[in-house]
Structure formats: C-alpha cells, structure tokens
C-alpha cells in the first residue's frame, strides 16, 4: 500500500465515485501533488471502477493534467499571436535566464516549471502568464525579475496586484 491511497480515497469520498467525478478528482490531485503519478492514477481507477488506461486516456487529453512531475510553481507563458507581437520572446528569455532552465523544464530544486501555453484569456494585456492559477499581465523583463524574486523569497506573493 502506498501513501497516495488514503488520499485518493478521501477525494473519492469528497467528490463521489461516478464517472463525472473523475476530472474534479484529477484536478485536485494535480493541484496538491503537482503530478498525476502512476500510483495516483491506479488508485483513482480503483476508486471509480475504471481501468487505469481510461484514467490515463482522459487525463492526457487535458493540458493541465500532467503525468510528468512539475515543480511547485508552474509558469505558463501565453504563446498566442498577440502575445508574440507584444514581446513574449523577451519574457520567456528572461525566465529562462533567471531560472536557468529551458521551456518544458523544471528547476533542479523542484520549485519552478516553465511552459508555454495557448491563449489564457488576456490578449488585451499581453504579454501574460499564469503562475499556477494566478494571472500576471502586461509583463516586462523587469517585472519578471520582481515576480520571480518574490516567489523565490517567500513562496507565493499574496499581496501582489497582478491584474492591472
């Protein structure tokens, strides 16, 4: 028995064991564990009486349900055409520079994962990005330095006014 089992069971108790409860359960696992591990998917399959392949097949459809481990903070930079026009490249370059990783990678300390993602709904305020669920807009390389510094210092920057 692994440690994920009681956790998954508690989620199934919370959300239910119907097929329609699958996504909420997977979403919460990713939010807390930062990954859908093999063990977690097996436990979800067991609780919901699905095959493991069905759980994996469903999860892999959704970009936010990662089966590869991500860092504590997942940075998703918007790569829409408008973001590109407004300087996405400088933002990504700056992030790579500060975090010393490439897009798609996780920092060795497991704190940050850097990704590019499709339109996140802030085309009027590009360049933009999400750090976990939090949006940051009108980004500049200078702002990036500041934001990342805050995350590095004290985890989440709670009082930062991210939406302008």
């Amino acid at each position: 028995m692994n440690q994920i089992q009681p956790y998954v069971r508690s989620l199934a108790d919370k959300y239910g064991r119907e097929r329609e409860c699958l996504l909420p359960i997977l979403q919460e696992i990713v939010a807390t564990e930062h990954v859908l591990s093999q063990d977690a998917m097996v436990e979800v399959a067991r609780e919901l009486n699905l095959s493991a392949a069905e759980v994996y097949g469903t999860a892999s459809f959704y970009s936010f349900l990662n089966t590869e481990p991500y860092g504590k903070y997942v940075i998703r930079v918007c790569k829409s055409i408008v973001a590109e026009m407004k300087g996405k490249k400088e933002i990504v370059d700056k992030l790579c520079d500060i975090l010393k990783i490439k897009v798609g990678e996780t920092t060795p300390n497991g704190k940050f994962t850097l990704l590019e993602t499709n339109d996140i709904g802030w085309s009027d305020q590009e360049p933009s990005m999400l750090i976990n669920e939090k949006p940051y807009t009108y980004l500049t390389p200078e702002k990036i330095v500041q934001i990342i510094a805050e995350y590095q210092a004290n985890g989440k920057s709670n009082n930062h006014q991210q939406i302008n």
């Binding site: 699905l50 095959s51 392949a53 069905e54 994996y56 097949g57 892999s60 459809f61």
Partner: peptide
C-alpha cells in the same frame, strides 16, 4: 479497457 485513446 486495456487500450485507450490518449492525448489530443
């Protein structure tokens, strides 16, 4: 259900 459709 050994086979599934994965990814998109």
């Amino acid at each position: 259900n050994a086979l599934t459709v994965a990814n998109k």
